[in-house]
Structure formats: structure tokens, C-alpha cells
Design a protein around this nucleic acid. Structure first.
Length: 1004
RNA sequence: GCCCAGGUGGCGGAAUUGGUAGACGCGCUGGAUUCAAAAUCCAGUUCCGCAAGGAGUGAGGGUUCGAUUCCCUCCCUGGGUACCA
């Protein structure tokens, strides 16, 4: 019997499912290992071959760890709330839950076909109420906490309230937006509303008016990481700034820990670097500048306090609250004009306009805190309202933007650097000596910074300060298909619904669009009010604002559910807790996380934030979610192109028109030219350089068609216009293309490509039509999407698994090309044949294996272990091929060898491995928990070594010598050879390098 | 602009610590088998050259007995980021 994957694969998948072979045990004496794939969003398009790449790698690793005796947690689930399902619902009226369910079923079916060893009993979906009950609970926990900078962790808001009650907030060091200082007495005098507003400035989940990225096309706000190049990541719609009352997450509180925590993670440096940049720590000082005419201060943040004597003007952001107050009457009109223009510009325009320097003098002056000099105050949109204090002290000699601004408006540029020329550009290096700076003169930059901060603090002007670029994350979305907030509003104040009443289930709505008065889609829900007497959701008509209140209309963003899902897998059915302490203590964080790098500033930052928070509150014992991460590269599609020309015009008799109903349509059919001939035309810079035979072929087509016109209209002066250089590329579905050869007869039957019918083809000389190709992202519109399903159908899951790994290093971006898949499939057939006789029956001997085969086996064990340890899955596949090639050559029949080889292979190709394992007479069951083969070094010990002999580093010949020889003996042996004499050309070598067991190099 | 990856045959890629460059697979060429095809097997396949030989890992330079590997300068491709004071 030949290798028949069509029988083998479904058989084993059924056995695994029936026996729950991959069920992970929560209490086990075995060491644990947690392998996780990034949560997929179940899109309507299903999986293409790029998606399973990471899943295959993690599955191989999970299976490897099982063979090594680990208790492996390898779960899968769905990030099933999200925009696409909702957009689809808006278009079709279908409930997102229904389409999501269908999509999940499709995903599951596709995943199942690839033979993954997931523990499906642990599946979670973010959109299921059992799951989002706990997302709502975590939100409540965040709401109930603030960040204490002294203890450096999140603490209960009740502690903060007691502090306020006894001492006020004067001594509180917390992460907060609170701008007022109050005493205990004042606190007690505030009414409930005021108190709540103050507390919102401290809570980790809080409600605030904030400038948000509003996307009108999607009808919702977006987080910073959901915007790419100024447009929405999903859909590419424009985004504008809008002030809205929104739920936010005080991720800023964790900025420092998110930054330093990166050092302990085993992630690629580039992702850590992206996060570092996103957090954007800068160390400096805040300094207050007194205004000349007002009793106001302008507070600035600077990273260069050492350059304070170089300040020659100040710039405020146009939105800065002091602008109107300080502007002098003669500048008022211009300032108002400038502010208006700036507000009309979108964030994107402002960014795109970097080279255009703009600004406006306010006419006001500030007082330099050390020199007492008057300095002009300007506004300019290069200063951002949302960073630092929205104001800068401009030091044109030390900052290029300030320098440009000063030059542009003719403001004085002071030089406070010793022997540095600043006539052409600012000097931004943080080195050198400070000059003309009173008490800082003569100091090195580093020392001057220290001294400047000391002086600023001594004078009470400000203090040393660290700023982060990281902004608090907007947590509200004006969408339907997301987690509802467990919040109702009483007198405009948010109130949390009690934990025992969770989950608050997403209500039904008739329409998924915003309401007519601009409220989010949940505003359409009829049953969406909270009854505080019966503690249940009731109809909105019952709202009396006494005992029945309106519920929050926003929903949570996509990253809510995905920020903690890895914890739920540990204990997915727990109804009492989001995860039990014991499960979390046993499984701890994810040992290996595989997924794309596109989540660097979103998901990966938010889950680190939530994990740290849950750790602070003592729910879990670790504070990083993903210890090691590998980012798989995207698999790019290889699109196929045909080159065609439509006949658009005629020359000659004007009375004959293509619009004439009698006009023969076949004359207008397109002409297709094969890729190599197309290239020949393209490469010819001049019409005259086009190869004659191509011109002849085109002319034959012209003649043929002109003849048809002549026969129809009896006019031989009319002909079609063909431009040799006007062939244009057109996508053709890759399923009709094999090895770049287009199957015209199949493709023309497809209604999408019916333009191929009746067309003329200029073929290659061998009569085939060759397509051109382009390597680009897979997409429906390019007809280059390869689904795993057809490949599994044609070659089997084991072949697909091995081929995806064989393509190249996991992290690399690589083009998909099915050309090589036959080679991998042949390998599996070869393996099958190795263990079967000519009649197709399993065939092995139980004698001791011969030395050569043992060597091959142990060499393979060594290589594969190394490959797995460094996640080099592609070389793993190569090493299997080498092994089977060698064993075939050796005519190996040893059961002992076969057994070990099959175990070794089982993570990569589990179905065939199970089948062979069974046929080799092993106990009924599964290979999944066999013991990974042990490497025996002694098998590989050799007596001799074939020394490569180089002359000046160039390998010339080889000499086999015993390894027991000393370097001197090796040199003597080598130099006595005939070949050596030939390359020496009678000369004496200058030097001979002998590295025992490695190489001989002769220097001449 | 700044930061981070990467650049090796016709193609995907290998070379793990500075030690035989091009493993393995695809493709291609020739042959065997076959009525034929598929499949299989054998031989060859970095480039130039009939050969001897020479060149060769993006380009140039350096360190070294020896460099795809280490250092410097530059070019190209991909990713991130972009007035962050």
C-alpha cells in the first residue's frame, strides 16, 4: 500500500478528538509548559496559508515539549468581538453574533484539518457572556484602583479616600490628572459630585473629557495604535480630533514598569525597541516662567535644563489655556486667526507640514527666572498641546526646531556653547562645555544639567521631572459589537453594577447604526436601563432617574478581551473567578508566544499593563504575560499576471464603427501575450528593437481580424489599431496557473475570466502561455490567496505542515510558492517506502541496527534537538530529508532506528508518525507521549578525519588522517602528499596552520 | 531624518563558536524504465572558461594564517517612528 494520507489523517484526527489526547491537566507532577498563539479574529474570509504558519510552529513545539515530558497547555480561541462583523451587520442586517458564529465554524473546520494538538476543551471567545463577565469585572477592578507612586503599585481607591479624609491630597504621590490641592476639611466639604470628579482624576479606569481620535466613517473613536499614517487601521478612513467624554485607562501610571520590564523578556530586540519608543521616556525638569504682566506662570518641560541661559523666547501650543489671557490687544486679532487656522488643520496635516514653519507673536513677555530678562512669548503649532505642559522654553542654539523658528522670525539666537559654531544649525549633542551661563559656565553638559536642576529646585521654580510620550488609552467605542460597560448613570455620575449581577449582556438592537441624535448604537436598544431595586436590566421606558437609570451606551474596545485571555485558558470554566489562584500559580505566564509583530504597540502593551495591574492586586503571582515571543513573518502571495490589449479603435473608413450592431465582436476580443515575449517588448527601448517574430505574430492576428471586417463590410481599407507597447498586466487567479503556465481552457470557463474566451494568444515558442508574477500581500482582489484547504486536500496536512516550515526561517517575510511542495510530499512518500516492502507491507527487522544507520540516526537526533531549541524549523525539515535519504541508501530495515525516527518526526508530521508507530507494533494509543530520543554521542566518535587542506585560505584537496595525530604529524603527512607539492610550486611554505579535527591551512 | 532587521546560485534557503560557501528542496539538462504518461531511479547543475585555471556571499576598505560570520564607510530592500521640547 502506498502512502495514503487521505485515509491516515482523518483516522488519527478522530482518535485524538475521541480520546481527548491533548487535554492539559491542571494538577500534574510534570513541569508545565505554556505555548500560545496570538488570538485570531475570525474573519469572513477564512484562513489563508499565512495564518497557520505560526500555529504550525507552535504546535510542533508543543508536541516536542510533550515528548520531553512536560505538561503542555496549548489552547486556542477567538477574539470574536470586532469591527468587521459589525460593518457587515450594518450592510446586511445580519446579527454580528450570527456571522461570527459562522466564521468561527469555518475557522474551526480549517484548523481541524491541519492536525493541531489544541486542547479544545479550553476554547474561549471574547464575545461570549461567560467570558466577558470577567472582562467587565476587570474593568470594575481598574475603576476601583489608583496608582500609588510611593509604593509603586495599584491600590484600592478606598485607601485614597481615607487619605483625603485625614490629610487631603497635598502629600499624595499618585498618578493623576488632578490639578487642585485640597485639605481634609475641603475634601469633606465637597459634594458627592465634586468628590467623584476628583476621584476620576485618580482611578485607573476613568471618565474624562479628552481629545480623542474621532473617525466619522466608522462612527467611533480610535486608540493611537489603531491609527496608521493618520487614517484608521481598519478601512483607511480619515480621523479628526474631537473633545469627548470617554472612558480611559491610566496606562501612563505603568509607563516606567512597562519600560523596565522589557529587559527581562525574551523578545526580539526590534519589538522591545518599538515599545520603548512608544513609551518615549525623557528625563529633564519642569520650570516655571513668570509672565510679565499677569500673575500667571508658564510651566515648561525641558530635557535640557543646562541650556536655560540660552532661552531667547517661549512657544505655547495654540490650544494652551493661557494664550487668550496673555495676548496683548494689538496682537489679539492675529493670534485668534492663527489659533483658528491651527484648529482647522487635522493632526495629519500638522504632521505632514513639518517643513513649514509657522507661529505668531502674542506680544506678551515672560521673565527669565535667572537673568530677569524679558523674553517674547509666541504660539506655534510645532508645540503639541498634549505633550509635557504644552509649552516650551525655546533654546535656538541647542534645538533645531527652535533654531529654525528663530531664524524664520528673526529672533535672537544666543550661543551658550563653548567654541561651537551655531551659525548654520543648532548644536543638539549632549556633550561639550556650557558658556555665557552664569553659574553653569565652564561645566560639562552632564554636570551642568545636575547643577541647573539643583538651582531650579532651590529657587522653587520647578523640579527634576521625567516625561513619557505614552498617552492614556481611550477605552470607549461608539460601537455595538463589543463588551458593554457594567455602568449606569445616576445624576450624570457613573455607578458600577455589582459584581454578582454580572455579566451585563449585550442587548438586542434593531439597527447597528448610531441613533439619529448621534448616540452610539446601544442608544437604539429598548431594554437598556438598570433597575437598582431588582438589580436587573429593564426597559428604557422605565427610566425615572430615581431607581431606574440609563446604562452606558459605549462598548469596550477590541483590546479589552484580548488583554487577559491567556489567563482564562488556565481555568476557562470557572464561574467564581476570572482564574483561580491555584491554576494561575501552576501555569504562570506564557512560555512561548507566537504571532505577528503588528501588535507591538497595541495588544502586547495593553496585556502587559493589565497583567501588571492584576499582579499588583494579588490575583496572579507574575507581572509579565509573555516570557518568550517569536514573531512570524508574513507569507506573501505570488500573484499571476496576464498581459493583454483590448482593441479600442479602428482606422480607415469612418462609416464603420465598433458600435455598429453588425460589427463582428470577435474582432474586439483582447489579445494576450505570454510573459517572456511581453518582456521582450518592454525591454526594447525602440519599436525597431522588438524581435521580428513577435511583430509577425501580432501582425498575423491583425491580418486575420481585418479580414473578418473586410468579409463583413466588404471594405479593405479598415483595420484595427494595435499598439505593440500597450499590453497591460491583469491579475489572473493562481488556481489556473501551474508553474507560471496558464491553463487557458480551465480559466476561460470561470465567469471572472471569461475575457479569455475567443481571445488571441501570443504564446511561447513551446506553445504555452507563461504568466508574469508579482510578490505582494495576499488579497482577494489580486486572486493570489492560497487557502490551506486545497493543499490539505491535494497533499495532506503533514505535507502542508512540513512545507510551511520548510519555506524558510519563521520570522522572515517570504513569498508563498507551491512549487516546492512536491519535494516535501515526496519526502513523506520516501519515508513510507523506507519502512515498507515492494508489496506495500510494513517491513522491518529486530536485529541490532548497523553502525552507519545508528550514526545517521544520532546525527539527526542531535541536529533536530538543536533546531527545535533555537526554533529553526526549516533546517529541521532538511535534516529529516537528509536522514531518510541516508537510511534509504543504507537499505536500513532496523525497527529500533525506525521507532526513534518516527518519534522524532511526530511533532512535524503527526499523522504519518502515528500510523507508522502503530504499524511498527507499538501498543495501541498515541505517539504523542512517547519519550523524545536520547542523543548518544559515542555513536558518532570517529577515528579518522578528512582534513581539508587550504592554501592561503582556499581549499584545494582533502587528506584523511587519524584524529590521534599531533599537529606536527598532521603537517608532515599533508606536506608529503603529491597534491601539496603541486600547489607549493617548489616553494617553501611560510607557515602551516593545523587546527586538529578542523582544517589545515598552508600560508605561502 | 532617526531607530531596528535584512542583502548568499535561475528560485526558497543552509553554513549554530572566525575554519571545506552554496547543505536540503524546487527548477533545469541528460540518461534509465515505460506502448505512453505519471511515478521512480541514475548523473549533472554558482559564474567565466574547451581545459588548465580564475572569480565569487550588496559595494569598497580593514583585522586575521583563514571572514557569509568581527570592525569602518557607503548602497539597496523591508519594518517602526516622525515636530515628544
Amino acid at each position: 500500500m502506498e502512502y495514503n494520507f487521505r485515509d491516515i489523517e482523518p483516522k488519527w484526527r478522530k482518535i485524538w478528538a475521541d480520546n481527548k489526547t491533548f487535554k492539559a491537566e491542571d494538577d500534574s507532577s510534570k513541569p508545565k509548559y505554556y505555548v500560545l498563539d496570538m488570538f485570531p479574529y475570525p474573519s469572513g474570509a477564512g484562513l489563508h496559508v499565512g495564518h497557520p504558519l505560526g500555529y504550525i510552529a507552535s504546535d510542533i513545539y508543543a508536541r516536542y515539549k510533550r515528548l520531553q515530558g512536560f505538561n503542555v497547555l496549548h489552547p486556542m480561541g477567538y477574539d470574536s468581538f470586532g469591527l468587521p462583523a459589525e460593518q457587515y451587520a450594518i450592510q446586511t442586517g445580519q446579527h454580528p453574533a450570527v456571522t461570527t458564529e459562522e466564521n468561527i465554524a469555518r475557522y474551526r473546520d480549517q484548523l481541524d484539518k491541519i492536525g493541531f494538538s489544541f486542547d479544545w476543551d479550553r476554547e474561549v471567545r471574547t464575545s461570549s457572556p461567560e467570558y466577558y463577565k470577567w472582562t467587565q469585572w476587570i474593568f470594575k477592578e481598574l475603576y476601583d484602583c489608583y496608582y500609588n507612586n510611593t509604593t509603586n503599585k495599584a491600590e484600592r481607591i478606598s485607601n485614597l479616600i481615607s487619605e483625603f479624609e485625614s490629610k487631603g491630597n497635598g502629600n499624595v504621590d499618585a498618578c493623576s490628572d488632578c490639578e487642585i490641592i485640597f485639605s481634609a476639611e475641603e475634601w469633606k466639604s465637597f459634594d458627592a459630585k465634586k468628590k467623584e470628579e476628583i476621584l476620576h482624576n485618580y482611578r485607573l479606569a476613568f471618565l474624562a473629557d479628552s481629545w480623542v481620535n474621532w473617525c466619522p466613517a466608522l462612527g467611533t473613536v480610535l486608540a493611537n495604535d489603531e491609527i496608521v499614517n493618520g487614517v484608521s487601521e481598519r478601512g483607511g478612513h480619515p480621523v479628526e480630533q474631537k473633545l469627548m467624554r470617554q472612558w480611559s485607562m491610566r496606562i501612563k501610571a505603568y509607563a516606567e514598569r512597562l519600560l523596565t520590564g522589557l529587559d527581562g523578556l525574551d523578545w526580539v530586540e526590534s519589538i522591545k525597541e518599538i515599545q520603548r519608543n512608544w513609551i518615549g521616556k525623557s528625563v529633564g525638569a519642569s520650570v516655571r516662567f513668570e509672565c510679565e504682566s499677569e500673575s500667571e506662570f508658564i510651566e515648561v518641560f525641558t530635557t535640557r535644563p543646562d541650556t536655560i541661559f540660552g532661552v531667547s523666547f517661549m512657544v505655547l501650543a495654540p490650544e494652551h489655556p493661557l494664550v487668550d489671557q496673555i495676548t496683548t490687544p494689538e496682537y489679539a486679532a492675529q493670534v485668534a486667526e492663527y489659533k483658528k487656522n491651527a484648529s482647522l488643520k487635522s493632526e495629519r496635516d500638522r504632521q505632514a507640514d513639518v517643513k513649514n514653519i509657522s507661529g505668531q507673536n502674542t506680544g506678551a513677555f515672560a521673565i527669565h527666572p535667572f537673568t530677569g530678562e524679558k523674553i517674547q512669548i509666541w504660539i506655534g503649532d510645532y508645540v503639541l498641546a498634549s505633550y509635557g505642559t504644552g509649552a516650551v522654553m525655546a533654546v535656538p542654539c541647542g534645538d533645531q526646531r527652535d533654531w529654525d523658528f528663530a531664524k524664520h522670525f528673526g529672533i535672537e539666537i544666543k550661543n551658550i556653547f563653548e567654541s561651537i559654531d551655531i551659525s548654520e544649525a543648532a548644536y543638539a549633542e549632549k556633550s561639550g562645555k556650557i558658556a555665557h551661563s552664569d553659574f553653569l559656565s565652564g561645566l560639562e553638559v552632564k554636570d551642568a544639567m545636575k547643577k541647573a536642576i539643583e538651582a531650579i529646585e532651590a529657587k522653587g521654580l520647578g523640579k527634576g521631572k521625567t516625561n513619557y510620550r505614552l498617552r492614556d488609552a481611550v477605552f470607549s467605542r461608539q460601537r455595538y459589537w463589543g463588551e458593554p460597560f457594567p455602568v449606569y448613570y445616576q445624576d450624570g455620575l457613573p455607578k458600577m453594577i455589582h459584581t454578582r449581577d454580572l455579566p451585563i449582556i449585550l442587548p438586542e438592537v434593531e439597527k447597528y447604526l448610531p441613533t439619529e441624535d448621534g448616540k452610539p448604537p446601544l442608544g437604539n436598544a429598548h431594554k437598556w436601563a438598570w433597575d437598582t431595586v431588582d438589580n436587573q436590566i429593564v426597559d428604557t421606558v422605565n427610566i425615572d432617574n430615581k431607581t431606574v437609570f440609563p446604562i452606558e451606551l459605549n462598548t469596550m474596545p477590541g483590546w479589552a478581551g484580548s488583554s487577559w485571555y491567556f489567563l482564562r485558558y488556565m481555568d476557562p470554566k470557572n464561574e467564581q473567578e476570572f482564574v483561580s489562584k491555584s491554576a494561575a500559580d501552576y501555569w504562570k505566564n506564557v512560555d512561548l508566544y507566537i504571532g505577528g509583530s503588528e501588535h507591538a504597540t497595541g495588544h502586547l502593551l495593553y496585556s502587559r499593563f493589565w497583567t501588571k495591574f492584576l499582579h499588583d492586586q494579588g490575583f496572579i503571582s507574575f507581572d509579565e504575560p509573555f516570557q518568550k515571543m517569536i514573531n512570524q513573518g508574513m507569507i506573501l502571495g505570488r500573484s499571476s499576471l496576464v498581459y493583454c490589449q483590448y482593441i479600442l479603435g479602428l482606422f480607415g473608413d469612418l462609416s464603420i464603427s465598433v458600435d455598429n450592431p453588425n460589427f463582428p465582436q470577435e474582432v474586439l476580443a483582447p489579445i494576450f501575450i505570454s510573459a517572456n515575449k511581453y518582456k521582450a517588448i518592454r525591454n526594447a527601448d525602440d519599436l525597431e528593437n522588438i524581435p521580428n517574430e513577435i511583430i509577425d505574430e501580432i501582425e498575423n492576428i491583425r491580418t486575420k481580424r481585418n479580414k473578418i471586417i473586410e468579409e463583413r463590410f466588404g471594405n479593405n481599407n479598415t483595420g484595427i489599431i494595435i499598439d505593440y507597447q500597450q499590453f497591460i498586466p491583469k491579475y489572473i487567479d493562481i488556481k489556473y496557473v501551474d508553474n507560471d503556465v496558464l491553463d487557458i481552457s480551465s480559466a476561460e470557463k470561470d465567469s471572472l475570466f471569461s475575457f479569455l474566451k475567443n481571445a488571441d494568444f501570443i504564446l511561447e515558442d513551446d506553445g504555452t502561455y507563461i504568466c508574469g508574477h508579482e510578490v505582494e500581500k495576499m488579497s482577494k482582489s489580486k486572486f493570489n490567496v492560497q487557502t490551506p484547504d486545497e493543499l490539505v486536500e491535494k497533499f495532506g496536512a503533514d505535507t502542508l505542515r512540513m512545507y510551511e516550515m520548510f519555506l524558510g526561517p519563521l520570522e522572515q517575510f517570504k513569498p508563498w510558492d507551491t512549487k516546492g511542495i512536491n519535494g516535501v510530499h515526496n519526502f513523506l512518500r520516501k519515508l513510507w517506502r523506507l519502512m515498507h516492502n515492494e508489496e506495500g507491507n510494513i517491513s522491518y527487522t529486530t536485529d541490532a541496527p548497523n553502525k552507519e544507520s545508528l550514526k545517521t540516526l544520532h546525527k539527526t537526533i542531535k541536529k533536530l534537538s538543536d533546531d527545535l531549541e533555537r526554533f529553526s524549523f526549516n533546517t529541521g525539515v532538511s535534516n529529516f530529508m537528509i536522514c531518510v535519504n541516508e537510511l534509504t541508501e543504507q537499505k536500513c530495515t532496523s525497527r529500533e532506528i525506525f521507532q526513534q525516527l518516527v518519534i522524532l518526526l511526530s511533532p512535524y508530521a503527526p499523522h504519518i508518525a502515528e500510523e507508522l508507530w502503530e504499524k511498527l507494533g507499538n501498543e495501541k494509543g498515541t505517539i504523542s507521549y512517547a519519550a523524545f530520543p536520547k542523543f548518544d554521542e559515542s555513536v558518532l566518535v570517529e577515528a579518522n578525519f578528512e582534513y581539508p587542506v587550504s592554501f592561503n585560505g582556499k581549499m584545494r584537496f582533502k587528506v584523511e588522517l587519524p584524529l590521534s595525530l599531533t599537529p606536527q604529524e598532521v603537517e608532515k603527512e599533508v606536506m608529503s602528499r603529491e597534491e601539496a607539492k603541486k600547489y607549493l610550486e617548489g616553494k617553501d611554505p611560510k607557515k602551516v596552520i593545523v587546527v586538529p579535527g578542523r582544517i589545515v591551512n598552508v600560508v605561502m
